[in-house]
């Protein structure tokens, strides 16, 4: 019973972290061009990073 007291909050915290990570990714537009993202890995980018 004692173990549950910290295991359950721990589980929920980690799960919540994953969920908020997904929601953040969604909001920042990372799911808007899945095909493009897959192909862009093949593009040689110049060294200077994009703004």
């Amino acid at each position: 019973m004692r173990t549950l007291a910290y295991l359950i909050p721990g589980t929920l915290l980690l799960g919540g972290l994953g969920l908020s990570g997904f929601l953040w990714a969604l909001k920042s537009g990372q799911y808007e061009d899945l095909d493009g993202a897959a192909e862009r890995i093949l593009v040689d980018q110049e060294d200077k990073p994009e703004r």
């Binding site: 061009d33 095909d35 862009r40 890995i41 593009v43 040689d44």
Partner: peptide
Amino acid sequence: HCAACIQTIEAALGKLDHVESARVNLST
């Protein structure tokens, strides 16, 4: 279609005067 298309287009449009940025969305 592909990565080469993305690169060609973005590079060519980026070189034009007054163009700030060009971004291809392959899905749409």
